[in-house]
């Protein structure tokens, strides 16, 4: 079955008002090309669900496309607080459902299993269940009588996920950080993957151990080279910290709107042309290919 579509056709799968799960974690493997396409198409009123979010969610909020956010963290890490997330929460313009990071995985797992919730042990005296009561409930184990925490199932209408390679049927391989992307793909109603390259099925079959999202979960496949940029996609390219710092600086200098407007107004090919100079490509691929590991023996 051929599920390949162009990036420009993403809007056939993500509608305004949808709940949208976004893959990746920290500064790794966020589906940034798809995020940029949502900005180009202005698909708004979204309920975004992230796990460990960063520039992906911050840009969507900056573009005014997010009504509600389910999250455990939104951060630019060393590069500062996520400016649009921070401002939107401080201004009261964003509905937030703050959930602890492991509980999000449990909620996705429940969604994938067609269950209304799954239990886990408690999270101590955290106030998160108090401020996000729709996500957590205290229950009693029917077998042991122990007090446990029920986590409501998380079932996004649609998920966008970036992977290393996929075939036309949507069998996806990953050889680096994959966050909770497989769990997200199992839980979501529809799944759109972007990938560094589309390959023949026989390429997938040669190394099935790296297929973490099988094609039967996937609805559409989009080829998007550097599709996680400026976040990483190991083993292809390292972290474009220079670009993230530029984003943070632009926001700090009051140029956020210009920055977001530029992303929304240019094609993905034009984005790559503008942002990824020959030197930048050389640097990012070199970082990914020359790992600095330390020998533990003989020290």
């Amino acid at each position: 079955m051929n599920k390949v579509i162009a990036l420009e056709e993403l809007s056939s799968f993500v509608a305004p008002g949808d709940s949208l799960g976004i893959g990746g974690a920290w500064m790794a493997s966020h589906p940034m090309a798809a995020v940029r396409q949502l900005m180009r198409d202005g698909i708004g009123d979204l309920h975004v669900i992230g796990s460990l979010s960063s520039i992906d969610v911050d840009q969507l909020i900056g573009a005014g496309l997010v009504r509600e956010l389910t999250f455990s963290m939104v951060s630019l890490e060393a590069y500062g607080l996520a400016p649009h997330f921070r401002k939107a929460v401080q201004d009261g313009t964003l509905i937030i459902n703050e959930i602890s990071g492991v509980a999000i995985n449990v909620g996705l797992d429940a969604g994938a299993r067609n269950l209304p919730y799954l239990p886990m042990r408690d999270i101590g005296a955290s106030q998160l269940p108090e401020v996000t009561p729709d996500a957590f409930a205290e229950i009693t184990c029917p077998f042991t009588g122990e007090r446990l925490l029920a986590i409501r199932a998380i079932v996004p209408d649609v998920a966008i996920i970036h992977v290393l390679r996929a075939d036309a049927a949507g069998n996806c391989q990953v050889e680096g950080p994959m966050a909770c992307d497989p769990e997200l793909a199992r839980a979501a109603g529809r799944v759109v993957v972007t990938c560094e390259e589309i390959v023949e099925t026989e390429v997938i079959a040669r190394n099935p151990a790296t297929t973490h999202i099988p094609g039967f979960l996937v609805d559409a496949v989009i080829e998007a080279p550097f599709g996680a940029h400026p976040t990483t996609h190991i083993p292809r390219y390292g972290f474009d910290a220079w670009a993230v710092m530029e984003y943070a600086d632009a926001c700090a200098d009051g140029l956020a709107d210009t920055h977001i407007a530029q992303l929304a107004s240019e094609s993905e090919a034009a984005y790559r042309e503008r942002v990824l100079s020959a030197d930048k490509r050389a640097v990012l691929t070199t970082i990914a290919r020359n790992p600095k590991t330390l020998e533990t023996q003989g020290t």
Binding site: N105, P177, G238, F239, K292
Partner: peptide, 23 residues
């Protein structure tokens, strides 16, 4: 791994014994 700002993930993955997901 050696600590730096841009290459730590590549180093972490290059010598790891298993790749899992958050689940």
């Amino acid at each position: 791994v050696e600590l730096n700002l841009t290459g730590v993930e590549a180093a972490i993955y290059s010598g790891a014994l298993a790749y899992w997901s958050f689940g």
